[in-house]
Design a protein around this nucleic acid. Sequence first.
DNA 1: CCCTCAAGCAGGAACCATTCCTGTTTGAGG
DNA 2: CCTCAAACAGGAATGGTTCCTGCTTGAGGG
Lengths: 141, 141
Amino acid sequence: MKREQIKHSIVRGLKEQGLKLTPQRSAVVEILTRDKSHPSALTIFRAARETRPSISLSTVYATLALLKKHRLIRELEFEGMDNRYDMDTDNHFNLICLQCGRIEDYINPAPVLPEVVEKQTGFRIHDVRLEFYGVCSTCAP
Amino acid sequence: MKREQIKHSIVRGLKEQGLKLTPQRSAVVEILTRDKSHPSALTIFRAARETRPSISLSTVYATLALLKKHRLIRELEFEGMDNRYDMDTDNHFNLICLQCGRIEDYINPAPVLPEVVEKQTGFRIHDVRLEFYGVCSTCAP
DNA sequence: CCCTCAAGCAGGAACCATTCCTGTTTGAGG
DNA sequence: CCTCAAACAGGAATGGTTCCTGCTTGAGGG
């Protein structure tokens, strides 16, 4: 899915739920679709300040909470760092570099299907987290 | 591996690194091997108080940090709850019940091997986290 | 047009698991 | 028994996130 499409689907998602697309929210969504590096709330806040200097950190948090609540974005909680936010709600692996903080995606060729686990364990699964922590090829060549 | 064996391997691990097995540390290790529910620092602290009323929360945290540093236990950071601690350093899935907080283990029949991912991506992997969030069979029958 | 009023916002205080700091205790090796 | 570094208890500090308060905005009705 392309950037503009993703942005559109979020904006549409907001409207469908009867929520307003304020300039502040628009700025947050804009940054989320532009920045592919799974930015943190603070990173989003700082970027949003450039186009909208009066925006507050609380508003960024509120907007992210709103989008998360309506399942338009995903909140990722990594070890030893701030929460990060992601448009991609698909279940894929995240590769987290402990040195530079970069987060890459990795498509699992043989995925573990939640349906199978549900059947085997009786758990009703809502969310999946698949993460590898290590050092990326740039930091440790 | 049985409880006593695990406890022994941790005690041995401590001694091999030249670390003292103080009564406080012994209490923490005892609880970790007894409580299979991946307890939090506070849970361990409260349990330790029963046999050793003078132990402080800082000491529990310090002991857990020490064991983690020497890779004798694993620190698990879950979404929306306190960190939990686990003796089992193997790579297995965790099933987390969002309702009662219970954490079960799930052995993946077709594991994703870190070595394969390393070869494909150039990442040097140190740690793996595989988690399913949902509702357990007891909470949603 | 203007009014109303709820939703949204900015700024800052509060929260709380975890870490850090300080002075005291402990116990192993001399 | 002495010494001294490691370990400890208690409490203060930290910092990302959430909560609170009073102000702003803009859509809908008159």
